[in-house]
Design a protein around this nucleic acid. Structure first.
Lengths: 355, 355
DNA sequence: CTGAAAGCGCTTACAG
DNA sequence: CTGAAAGCGCTTACAG
């Protein structure tokens, strides 16, 4: 009926006493260093196991004088999307937590519409004295080139937000994009009957940079196709410009396709919400889109957007650095793929979403 | 294009040097203790502000010798529901993290079908030397009595999982139960057309102990009623017994009501999933229920359950203790209501839900 | 292969 | 009102 937790901290000193050695020797065993006889090593290991010794990581963080330098290379926040700001928020949270451990982190931001800024920033990183770099691989070829150079210099790499074929050393942390699409398909399937019309909307500038949208769309279509419910699915690309121009395109396509569901493949779903809000004369289809941005949530709250699928960019940023910390300091193995949860937000749970 | 983070830690020593005082005096100012002249206090405060001094909480945790004792009073895990096990998992995680700060936590488990066990455990807590207690207030009157006694003894209290009218000193951490019901209503509304039939199922032993289910049901009905879509809603209580008996009840009620949606108000939704899995001859309605328990997820994965609404019992447990830590050690103000996120899980995102 | 000592950035008696 | 010193549990040179 009651579980007790007692015992004052059983520390390195206690081990030393029990083993009749100095604390330095215990430390050597704890950190798997050379220069300990097998006999004492075994004796100490046994005591550690017997007493279930847990090191005090705070004491360790105090005494250890790390000199780790991490770099972060992600797109800068643009007016069009606050998505990367959320990611940056998570990164700053991690930076603050990591500082007491002697870890310095430098953030490099590039313009995702200007590959030169990526090249320049990545060159800076290569010339710096970094131990690891967190990369959002928007430019696939340039990233491939960059990580190759990193690996030559023994610089660890980790991807966030989307994965690419050329491997980083520490894997990828972010959503499974195919599943993200499948989830959108799953939600869509609950909204409409057999034979309904679905319009997939890509609203973006320079679509060539957004290969990962294709993965989402594949998952979406595949899921719906396998239901055998004879949905009519069309895909339309709309360049992201002034609202007025996007509106014109929306008007055209909505009239052309009269969809029952609109699936917006990225965080620009608020634009579509605004469109139907401004045009109450047009029957609103169900609308599914991405990301917990203020403007998206506004139209969710107004009932214009039905489902927002969220992949926690803040957590991605936070955990990317957290994994680096664990890799370097705690020597933990890190798996190749660290999937992020994929959250579903509606008008009835958005107010509790933030922590 | 790049944000720099530099500077070795600016510490209490640096402040002391700049202010021409000893570190003890700086410490006095930092911790708002008496016995410092206004002049030096101001000088030090200015330096702290100017250099944006951030204390190293790890160093603090090392040197401070806290003697805090927390108690946790929650239902024990029963065979029928792993819900409280999840909560306990989060609590154990927090206990481990809090130990290095000199915080001892004792868990008391009571049987939610036996009020005597609650009385006995709460008496034990009152006789102990605790500074605070985390309470899951299943027994409303007994909890009211207990917290009154706690408050007489200057014992801080905090509720988790569900709230009750008699106030704890540190508020409530958990879901907004009315919203939880509304969210279930919201999802339901996407599944069915006007005039559809909905059956609400309470499957529980000793229903009188589960007042909080009523709050969920209220939110659910209210949401659906306000849509004016002429849904037919019925509520049925089924005592929780052997599966065979529940099955019989289910069979009766499904035939009687032929619902289009089944809303199971607690975590016993796997039973309903199993029922339709075992009876493929009966047309399965849409099924909405609660909680990320293994057996529920199994039937979600099998396509028998459509939506699971999850209120993160693990996080509730973790954060309850985390709040106590912040209240006592960081002197943070804690709000009255700390809402938990309400998550939606389907067959397409459950595999990424756990962290 | 092993140990004594200093130090990480704080807090806490204790002495003045 | 103020300061010198010890100590929290570790790690890190340095000496042997």
């Amino acid at each position: 009926m009651s579980e007790d937790k007692g015992k004052k901290h059983f520390g390195i000193k206690d081990i030393a006493r029990l083993a009749n050695v100095s604390i330095a020797t215990v430390d050597r065993v704890l950190n798997n260093r050379k220069d300990v006889s097998d006999a004492t090593r075994k004796k100490i290991k046994d005591i550690i196991k017997e007493y279930n010794y847990q090191p005090n990581i705070y004491a360790r963080s105090l005494s250890v004088k790390n000199n780790l330098n991490f770099a972060v290379l992600i797109p800068k926040t643009s007016l069009e999307t606050g998505y990367w700001q959320l990611c940056l928020d998570g990164i700053h949270k991690a930076i603050k937590e990591l500082e007491p451990f002697g870890i310095q982190t430098t953030v490099f931001l590039y313009d995702q519409e200007d590959v030169d800024t990526f090249a320049k920033a990545s060159a800076q990183i290569l010339n710096g004295k970094f131990n690891a770099v967190v990369i959002a691989p928007i430019f696939i070829n340039e990233t491939e080139h960059f990580v190759k150079e990193c690996h030559k210099r023994k610089l660890q790499t980790i991807y966030i937000n989307s994965d690419i074929p050329s491997k980083s050393t520490l894997g990828y942390i972010g959503p499974d994009l195919n599943s993200t699409g499948r989830l959108a398909g799953n939600l869509t399937s609950y909204l409409i009957g057999a034979g309904s019309k679905i319009l997939i909307l890509n609203i973006a500038k320079g679509l060539e940079n957004y290969k990962y949208l294709d993965t989402k769309i594949e998952g979406y279509k595949e899921y719906l196709f396998n239901l055998n419910r004879d949905f009519k699915i069309d895909v339309v690309d709309i360049p992201f410009n002034e609202y007025d121009e996007v509106e014109k395109e929306l008007q055209l396509n909505v009239h052309k396709y009269t969809p029952d569901v609109l699936f917006v493949t990225n965080s620009r779903v608020s634009i579509v919400g605004r469109f139907f809000y401004d045009h109450p004369e047009i029957t609103k289809p169900y609308i599914v889109g991405f990301d917990f941005l203020k403007e998206n949530v506004d139209y969710l709250a107004k009932g214009m957007v039905d489902f927002l699928i969220c992949q926690r960019p803040d957590k991605q940023g936070y955990f990317a650095l957290n994994y680096l910390y664990r890799f370097f300091l705690l020597k933990e193995e890190v798996g190749d793929f660290k999937p992020m949860p994929i959250d579903i937000i509606t008008i009835e749970n958005y107010m509790f979403y933030e922590n």
